[in-house]
Nucleic acid binder design. Sequence first.
DNA 1: CTCTCACATCAACAGCGCTTGATGGGTTTT
DNA 2: AAAACCCATCAAGCGCTGTTGATGTGAGAG
Lengths: 123, 123
Amino acid sequence: MGFMNGLRDAPPATAPAAGTPLPLDSEQARALLKALADPCRLQVLEALAGGERCVCDLTGALGLAQSRLSFHLKVLRDAGLLNDRHSGRWVYYRLCPEALEALQGWLAGLARQCTAPATPCCD
Amino acid sequence: MGFMNGLRDAPPATAPAAGTPLPLDSEQARALLKALADPCRLQVLEALAGGERCVCDLTGALGLAQSRLSFHLKVLRDAGLLNDRHSGRWVYYRLCPEALEALQGWLAGLARQCTAPATPCCD
DNA sequence: CTCTCACATCAACAGCGCTTGATGGGTTTT
DNA sequence: AAAACCCATCAAGCGCTGTTGATGTGAGAG
């Protein structure tokens, strides 16, 4: 789900080098950015930056209501930023580094040519 | 303005290597992400990815109402993602690559350790 | 000086996203 | 079976954010 959609249609000839994340279009980047642009969700990401953790652990560590945390976990998971793993009655969440790397690549592409001189305007 | 605030207090001893962007805290990252998480603003950024352009040029290229574009330009500028330059009665905007690089660095920091095994929970 | 142009700002409205409390499904204990 | 626990989902309420149209400001043109 999330930013990985449409991967099946990518022609192998134009595929990026192995290891590099697939380039994002504007809509995919926007979805990732929107999912990231929330203080609660950033707390979750930073709590998961050290590795996989279960929900009940996160509720305690972040001091968030269970319903509230579950809502934000769903947003992050739907965006493709988180993966989940069910074990017994617990659910473990972990960061999806591919999504973060893809977004890094998108930002790098923006900054690449932005120092070009002004295009002549209205003269 | 924006993510560059608080630079004066940074001790030189702990400053990053020359050329690398200064590390962001959660709040700075959140502000940048929030400014980015909008389709209109992404249009603006991509239009400016090729280099500096004036507002009247952007309105025509993006097909946005002048008031609307001005609103989003202000959001991006306040966040530190854009710089402006006044020339006659025109205003030229350009991307601020430092902000983009800083955000890239923040994302890279998140992805660095996230493959650690699960911390034992509730056992 | 007056008019036009480029851009910023304002007030009002509408829509979306987040929070909260309650409910439900699924799993392990007792 | 019943109880306790973990987690997801739902409906209701509300605040924040973006859009729109009008107005303000400053700089060149006539």
